[in-house]
Design a protein around this nucleic acid. Structure first.
Lengths: 225, 225
DNA sequence: ATCAACACGTGATCC
DNA sequence: TGGATCACGTGTTGA
């Protein structure tokens, strides 16, 4: 890739053959389409991930990465618990175990391996260094305490507090609505800049909404702006 | 969005001020940096999600989205199991006690266990803005519509009742927000299909919407679908 | 006025 | 030859 031989492009006289014109019309067009496609995904991702208010691309990617790792961590943890529980009364749960091979593929990922047949692959996060105290296992931010979710049957009770911000209540309710919950009652008040609310809702459809998902969604709204 | 009439390209000779050169050198440089930052995240993401061999940006984003949803689904499921296990201390008799549960295959969407994930393939449209929810409710029970507005200084008190409809509360609050009112407190409940609410708000700006304007806006929300 | 983030059009490269 | 993807430099816009 040597560069720098480029001067002003030839914008010139429409005299030359229209072929060129046509072809790069298409070019510019498809590129535009590609861009908007990418941006669409970015928007989706940003709405899917606890990106605290930040919407720029790098932040979205960063938060996505972090969130992904956290989710995997939690899954691993939950599964180990589940296994421990399943394995009968074996009193001890295994402390920690690398369940799977940690294949690190990084960088120029040009593996010609796994073809397209069913995606049966799962990636591990990066290696956990041996030794070294890298466990920030409890990655809970302090705002966790602000949201309390109680679920009984189809009834969901949400109790939360957060510092007030304009439209925050509206956004909370939008979030709830998007979770397929029908709001049944609301009580909210502002005290000393702190918004407190209690919301009761019912599951709209058969879709299981919940628990942590709700909490995360709400925290996403609350968490910074 | 018309634009033109801007042809300000003074191609200055390097004579006058080097600052120009400097400044957009910086520009191109930082942009380059931004790009490589983004690409770095893309690489990481691509190594973190089960991307079936595809490494192009759109695919990475797509797979990330899909994977993220799957992880959340999975967590949800595991947590519900965990809750069930915790609460029900009764013997969880597993029909089979095959211990060979070592390997994990969380494959993509191949679980047939007690759950029917309604898979939505691709095609996630955007969200944003208000409005879009099309809920067909053709009932216009105007007899129950009742809106009372009280304005004192900057304080607006809204008391209204209407027949309940999905998202109606949300839309009411959106309408209020659009009227430049800051919602201070909300009380709402549903009784026998009738939604009653009391909302107190403060005028955001200096412009105070008149009571009739507010009332009309709210009534429009109530009887529109 | 500096900085950061973005979208755009364009040339290059790879099936 | 053509469609798709990328990196690049640039113009623009908000803080």
């Amino acid at each position: 890739m040597h560069e720098n031989c480029r001067l002003e492009s030839v914008k010139n006289n429409g005299n030359s053959k229209p072929e060129v014109e046509e072809v790069d019309r298409n070019h510019v067009l498809s590129e535009r389409k590609r861009r908007e496609k990418i941006n669409e995904r970015f928007t989706i991702l940003g709405s899917l991930v606890p990106s605290g208010g930040k919407v720029d691309k790098v932040s979205i990617l960063d938060h996505t990465i972090e969130y992904l790792r956290e989710l995997e961590r939690r899954i691993e943890e939950l599964e180990s618990h589940k296994e421990a529980a399943e394995l009968g009364s074996s009193t001890q749960s295994k402390p920690l175990d690398a369940i799977e091979r940690t294949s690190d593929n990084y960088g120029p990922s040009k593996n010609g391996s796994t073809k397209k047949p069913s995606i049966n692959k799962r990636k591990a996060s990066e290696m956990e260094k041996t030794g070294g105290e890298s466990t920030r296992s409890r990655l809970r931010d302090s705002s966790t305490d602000n949201v309390t979710i109680t679920i009984a049957d189809n009834d969901v009770s949400i109790e939360m507090r957060c510092s007030w911000r304009e439209c925050v209540l509206l956004e909370v309710m939008e979030a709830i609505s998007k979770l397929h919950l029908n709001t049944q009652s609301v009580q909210s008040s502002i005290d000393d800049g702190i918004l407190s609310m209690t919301i009761k809702a019912k599951c709209k459809g058969l879709k299981t909404a919940s628990a942590s998902v709700i909490r995360q969604a709400l925290q996403r709204v609350v968490r910074k702006s």
